[in-house]
């Protein structure tokens, strides 16, 4: 079981109010991702749930039980830290065993769980090494192993992949998703990387300055962003936002169109501009189009990787009207 409810939770550090009143329900077995720019209070929120910080006001319930004043160890949650926080003087085996040792679990049960965790995380050959003798990805797995053996009611991850190189990150992303499928335990995952959020989450919570901007599945957020901030944050490359005359014609203060919803052509179209930088990814090419007369920001367009366009070429763009997002003066979706 791992149903976590936040009820009007706030957090201030002295005068600074980091989390304004916030309500959130995380259902049992869900993979929830908190995403938002750096410094928006994601870690603080996670640490409040973990019990590493005290809430200033409000209530946290775990499985219906008031956990607001419970010490961290009693909450039955396991956390994987950004720095991994492995114990450097203990072997991998001792690291993984530590929470079980603290709980006073019988030795043979400890060994059984260590073997099982090591097997599923490919750590069997490294059990007698120190953390200092492992690679970043292996350390990450030890940290996960230390969390798994406790059989917690929910896992908390704080930017666990940000210290890994790009290839390893993709790998570990997959492994964590597979772990979730296998364990079906609630997981709360903090990241500033919207790609991680989109690929892993059942439910994404977009945060800005401690406020929840939108909660929803990845596709909901992609298709119907509630405001300009979410629209700009979710999706890669970013949505093009156009203001002024063009937007007013559509009855909005701002209109948004994703790079993949713009049709590009060399013959003709609604808008036109010159190609600036062309980013060739092989399957796709992203074009930055300047001098389009719609604003100062260049427009980003996704075109087929085969399309032969070069710096300085003239190009015509036509937006897919059905995929157009409209926002009012307050930035809210119309």
């Amino acid at each position: 079981m791992g149903r976590i409810t936040l009820d009007k939770v706030t957090k201030s550090f002295g005068e600074v109010n980091v989390i304004p009143p916030l309500d959130l329900t995380i259902n049992d077995g869900e993979f929830v991702v908190f995403v938002g720019p750096s410094g928006c209070g994601k870690s603080t929120l996670l640490r409040l749930i973990a019990g590493l910080e005290d809430v200033t006001s409000g209530q946290i319930r775990i499985d219906g039980e008031d956990a607001t004043d419970m010490p961290p160890a009693k909450r039955g949650l396991a956390m994987v830290f950004q720095s991994y926080a492995l114990y450097p003087h203990m072997s991998v085996r001792k690291n993984i065993a530590f929470p079980m040792k603290m709980a006073g679990m019988p030795q043979d049960e400890q060994n059984r769980r260590i073997e099982a965790a090591a097997k599923s995380l490919n750590l069997t050959d490294y059990l007698d090494r120190r953390p200092g003798q492992l690679s970043g990805g292996q350390r990450q797995r030890v940290a996960i192993g230390r969390a798994i053996v406790r059989e917690p009611s929910a896992f908390l991850f704080d930017e666990p992949l940000s210290n890994l190189d790009a290839a390893l990150r993709v790998n570990m992303r997959l492994e964590i998703s597979e772990l979730h499928n296998a364990l079906k335990t609630t997981m709360i995952y903090v990241t500033h990387d919207q790609v991680e959020a989109m690929t892993m989450a059942d439910k994404i919570v977009v945060l800005r300055a401690g406020n929840i901007e939108q909660v929803g599945s990845p596709l909901e957020l992609y298709k119907t962003p509630r405001n300009e901030f979410v629209a700009g944050f979710i999706g890669s490359p970013k949505m093009n936002l156009i203001r002024g005359e063009t937007a007013a014609q559509k009855g909005a203060a701002t209109i948004g169109i994703r790079p993949e919803h713009l049709a590009a052509s060399t013959e003709g179209g609604l808008w036109q501009g010159t190609v600036g930088v062309a980013e060739h990814l092989g399957s796709d090419t992203f074009l930055h189009v300047h001098d389009h007369g719609l604003g100062d920001e260049p427009l980003t367009v996704r075109v087929d990787g085969e399309m032969a366009v070069r710096h300085g070429d003239r190009i015509f763009l036509t937006p897919d009207e059905s995929k157009l997002h409209r926002f009012d003066k307050q930035g809210l979706r119309i």
Binding site: A50, G51, L52, P71, P72, A73, L77, A78, M79, F81, Q82, S83, A85, L86, Y87, P88, H89, F98, P99, M102, A103, R146, R150
Partner: peptide
Amino acid sequence: DQEQLEAAEMDGAGALSRFFYIMLPHLA
């Protein structure tokens, strides 16, 4: 590293265990 102490706290180590298992080895 404060996160080590926090990790130990979450792992169920009380103040004394944190001292003997985490701080003392660090101070060696």
